[in-house]
């Protein structure tokens, strides 16, 4: 199955929360609605954090895959609420 093509990749491997989300949020601010971010992380917490971060920011969590050591999360940036309230 073909994965979504990312417009930007955030390589947060080797870091722990909150760094992966901080880096993802930074990249999200530079992109436009509809664009896709791929987050690479080794912190297992990313699997839980990305969906809740997406709910808070109005972005869409497209899915997460893992081989047990690295997690790959795809996010599609949302519209008006994808940012501050």
């Amino acid at each position: 199955m073909e994965r979504p093509h990312p417009d930007r990749t955030v390589d947060a491997t080797g870091t722990f929360c909150p760094v992966p989300i901080i880096e993802t949020a930074k990249v999200a601010r530079d992109l436009s609605p509809g664009q896709v971010i791929l987050v690479l992380a080794t912190d297992p917490g990313i699997e839980s954090d990305v969906p809740v971060w997406c709910r808070g920011t109005g972005n869409e969590h497209l899915g997460t895959e893992t081989d047990g050591r690295t997690w790959r999360c795809w996010i599609r940036l949302g519209g008006p609420r994808a940012g501050r309230t």
């Binding site: 917490g45 809740v52 709910r55």
Partner: peptide, 20 residues
């Protein structure tokens, strides 16, 4: 599962971005 970051959970409930 791994417990999510509590501030992010609050942001999701409030539909607000919480900047970490």
């Amino acid at each position: 599962s791994v417990k999510p970051n509590e501030a992010l959970v609050a942001g999701a409930e409030l539909e607000t971005e919480v900047e970490l």
